[in-house]
Structure formats: structure tokens, C-alpha cells
Amino acid sequence: MSDLKSGSNLEKVLKAGHFAFTGECGPPKGADVEHLKEKFQYLKGNVDAVNVTDNQTAVVRMSSLAASKLMIDEGLEPNFQMVTRDRNRLAIMSDILGAYALGIRNMLCLSGDHQTFGNNPQAKNVHDIDSMQLIALVKKMRDEEKFMNDEDIDVAPKMFIGAACNPFADPYEYRVYRLANKIEAGADFIQTQCIFNMDKFRDFMKKAVDMGLHKKCYILAGVTPMKNAGMANFMSKFVPGMDIPASIIKRLKGVDKKNQAEEGIKFALEQVEEFKEMKGVAGVHMMAIEWEHMVPEIAERAKVLPRPVV
């Protein structure tokens, strides 16, 4: 046990060599705890950890820190997301300590969507540090037990450090090096952007494996089941950094509207099957956006249940 970095369930599952399966849950646009608890129930027991998003798409929601704590109280393990858009280094370090004190053991380090996209475009964006530096900061606090200014921490936060990777953003040829930088900075695990372009992802993973990155870090492939062709179209056109091949949209359109959700799930399940076999992929991050109630069925059909207890 002593060689564990944080002792989180996610870390233990990955370290034991199991194929990890993580979920995602967006806190409410309000303080509706009951609704949040309801969403937790769909995820409980079906995933190893749940990402709790931090004002995703720059829309104000219940804080990811508070929602992560509520999640712990319900017996699930959160993967606390933190963006550098809204906090300077003081707030970041203090929230990391607070998160650890509340029992949070996984953290995903992000820069965050620019506030232009959200419902407070007038806001000042902080960006005191960036996501790469956040990874390094969490690692320093954990391993050196020091703050960024080299002052000692009395009880250091021992986090399992996550980072994001978007193989579909440009410039493509640099993306694998940026991933390597994140791993060098201290990322223990990576969750990728939603994957739809499987050809490109296979190529990307080959490059990552050739560089040996999969041995330094657990790479979880991002999957989002499409609810319908309209959603695929929308994401393709309006969500930055999304690469949705025309063939996927065509496949969804090819079936009756009422069967499109099933077709979307089928595609996601096919992806999961391939990822189980793909060299360098340590698990799947299932982002069923506002579709949490489908997670039990998806997990069941993906044959990832029961989740290992380690």
C-alpha cells in the first residue's frame, strides 16, 4: 500500500491492472442536492470514480469541490476537476488542501473552456497558471510536501493526478509531445477528449506507445454515447476541438429517429470493446452527458461489471 501515491480507488484499480471505467457528473445550476444525489445513484457501483466538472463550458454551477464532497458522503469516489480559469495560485493551493481534507483523492487538472463560451462572458479570466503548471503544482505539494513558494506543508495533500488530452486538436503532430509534457509534469492518469475518429486515435495511441508514454501513465480513452444525429451534428459544428467523422453522423442518420440513441450506444460499446484490446489504453472514461441514468445499462452491456474491489 505504501507505494500508492494517493490510495484512491481509481489508483488502486489501475495499479492492479484492471481496465478502469470512470464516469462523469455535472453539478447542478443551483444547490439542488437531492437531484445530484439521484444522479449519483446511477453511477454508484458502475464506475471506479466520477469526474465532477468545474463550471464546465464556463457556465456557473455548484462548485466541483462541494459536489465532490457530497459524492463522497454518498459512497462514490470523485475525480475532482479543477480549472485554472477561475482561480489564482492562492485559491488553487488552498482548494487543493481543502479538497484533500474533505477526503478527495483524485484531481483532474484543466485550463477550462474560455469564459467567452459561458454565461458570464464579462468575467475576468485568471489564468495565473496553466493546466501543465497545475499538474506540476499538485505533484510538488504531494511529493515534496511543499507549496509552490517552497514553504513546507504540514499535512500534504496526496492526490492521484489526472490530466486531459485532446488528440483531435491541432497541431496534431505536436499533441503526443504535449501529452508527454503533461506526464513529465506529473500526470498519473490521462483522460482523453471524447473519441469519435477511431482512425486518428489508433494512430495517436501508436505514437504514444512508441514513445513509451503508456508505461509512465494510465491513459483512459474518452467515450461519449450520442443520443441522436442532431447531437452529433451540433458537437461537430459547435464544440471546439471535436472531431466527428461524417461516417458517424451518417450511421446515426441511417436508422429511424427513435433508434438513434440505441445506435449511439452501440457505437460507444464497439469503441469500448476495441479500447479493451488497444495497446496503451488502461481504461475508458464514459462521459454520458446529462444521460447518467443510462450508465448502468451501458456499463452492463460494455461488460465492465462488476467493478473490481481492490
Binding site: H114, S131, Q133, P171, G241
Partner: peptide, 21 residues
């Protein structure tokens, strides 16, 4: 850079254009 990243580019970079516009 819209996010003043010291270690970019972020995942919103597409065809040489920033995600903000």
C-alpha cells in the same frame, strides 16, 4: 493566447484558429 498559456496549445486549437472565434 486567450488563456495566456505558457504551455500551449490547449484542446481548443483547430486549423490554426483559437476556439474563442
Amino acid at each position: 493566447c486567450a488563456k495566456s498559456l505558457m504551455n500551449g496549445p490547449c484542446g481548443g486549437s483547430s486549423d490554426g484558429v483559437c476556439e474563442i472565434n
